[in-house]
Amino acid sequence: MTETGRCEHMKKQEPIHQIQTKKDSLSREEQQKQHEFQKEAVVHLNSLYNYALHMTMNPDDAEDLVQETYLKAYRFFNSFERGTNCKAWLFKILKNNYINRFRKNSREPGKVDYDLIKDFYHSIKDTRSDTTEAESDYFHSLLHEEVYQALHSLPEEFREVIQLCDMEGFTYEEIANMVESPIGTVRSRLYRGRKLLRGQLEDYAKKFGFNTNNNTEQ
């Protein structure tokens, strides 16, 4: 009665209409999988694309990475533990893909290519999503690009946890699983990363003539 059982009896010479019937019954199962996959996994496409962009700094590579991730995720969708965070599962696949494909050729860790970041940012910002303009706070007056550069000036292990936590909203447990480190390490990386970032943002604030003092003295 199983699909595989039926397939064992099939020969290449089978009449087209019979193959068609079997195709239909097969695809019902596939259709269900597709439906579930789209509901659970495809909804995270934008997040994955942004994460890939941050890692590769190249829109074409980011697209490839995301495609590869979805292809793999679809193939192994049965192994996804239902009820757990599908986005976290996808991010982990994406990260592994990235390590396998790109990291070997990447720039030296700790070296920041500001021109690359700038070029990248300008090449892509026209397609950006809407952002919430607002708040009079001096830090909020900083250009997006400056914040972007500050984030990218951090060593990767700090940038990674900040992105996963502050931009993607993962829990410490999920992040620990993704970066394959204990929760205590995630905590301390976030602490140190935010401190470094704060230092960077203050430099930018000074550079652009903003008041970096929290108190509202003039």
């Binding site: 999503s129 952002t131 997006h144 972007y148």
Partner: peptide, 22 residues
């Protein structure tokens, strides 16, 4: 300061839309 830094990242980093081709 740490709370503020988190807020800046959350609000100021532009999220791009995945291209239609993707």
């Amino acid at each position: 300061d740490a709370k503020k830094t988190k807020m800046i990242i959350k609000e100021r980093i532009v999220q791009f839309k995945a291209p239609q081709s993707l």
